[in-house]
Design a protein around this nucleic acid. Sequence first.
DNA 1: GTCTATATGCAGATAGAC
DNA 2: GTCTATCTGCATATAGAC
Lengths: 208, 208
Amino acid sequence: MILTTEEKILEAAKKVFHQKGYDGARMQEIADEAGINKALVHYYYRNKDNLFQAVFEDAFTRLLFKVNEIFYSTGSILQKTESFLGYYMDFLQKNSFLPMFILNSLYNRPDQLKVILGKLALTPHNLLALIKQQLKEEYNLDIDPMHVYINLLSMVIFPIVARPLIQQIFRLSQKEMELFFEERKKEVPLFIISALKGYSNETIRTNE
Amino acid sequence: MILTTEEKILEAAKKVFHQKGYDGARMQEIADEAGINKALVHYYYRNKDNLFQAVFEDAFTRLLFKVNEIFYSTGSILQKTESFLGYYMDFLQKNSFLPMFILNSLYNRPDQLKVILGKLALTPHNLLALIKQQLKEEYNLDIDPMHVYINLLSMVIFPIVARPLIQQIFRLSQKEMELFFEERKKEVPLFIISALKGYSNETIRTNE
DNA sequence: GTCTATATGCAGATAGAC
DNA sequence: GTCTATCTGCATATAGAC
């Protein structure tokens, strides 16, 4: 697969921005990574902000697209949770800098998000309504789906983001860390489904 | 309360580094924030790296100290979870830049952590052993406590870190966001305890 | 389109007066 | 200890030849 110069620059920029963030990235390093001259980067993207914008939008849409793709598919809560864990965690492990890059960019450059949110037509409330309906049908739960949804995202994304911290504190080898993530693909769905069942029992007990 | 110049610098440095990270922080801004001259910052801390090191160590120990404080205290899993949620989430909301600062610093400056880990005597395995024992006694669960522990941390810390993202995507006002966090202080312990009870049922069913 | 050379500004750090 | 003035290097960005 052959890349145009513009594509080479974007790929190089992704690599550098993802790892170092806006402030830590250097135009020179991006040029080197792309195997071209620094002036060419400016020729195609005019300035650092523009290039960053392109990288951020790519990252954001890719990350968000995968989430929606799974939750809007057919299947039970259990099935969705399991495929989310398997599919999304693989994706995040292969792109381990992505979530940190997104989150950190929102702290340093909050306006960046507004630009892209204006372009996308997000309907998160449809998604929540769908989950709420499934919780009712499958677990007879009449609860706010927001917390359950955020809990799931937390348990998937946080360990990826905090990986360096976890690994150092618990003194895990690379191999042990990978095993830990592999286990989570089964443990987290089990945890969530257990909680949902537990909720039901709790509710029933309260109603007696 | 009157501060020495050195303390004023450190306080100013915390403010700036926490929000902008190492690369985004400017010595000039720190000096301005402290209300003194830029040369004085160098007089006390010699260079940017030293100052950052001081800020990072302060943040890291404060963040970690709070975690241990709660989990090594007496009380049931439920009690610990509840006080962790109440106590720690309040702390994080008041210091909302801290977790992002720590996590991001580990990406950009991984060696930073090793320096401080050498100074602290962390014994996370004792903590896990304690949790494991309590899971056995209180829920008759014979499982690896690591996943449960990371799940709890995830559900507490991630929403704080991802707050700007959540708020924008779900279009929540400041007030709604605060309410959401307030709800989580009850929702997350309920979720976890439900899961632990559900686990037991699952185990019993499997053993029959 | 792609390069070399360069302009411009700013950040970290130091010298030296008080 | 605290300041003003300044050095040095580097990062973004542009000019202009090919």
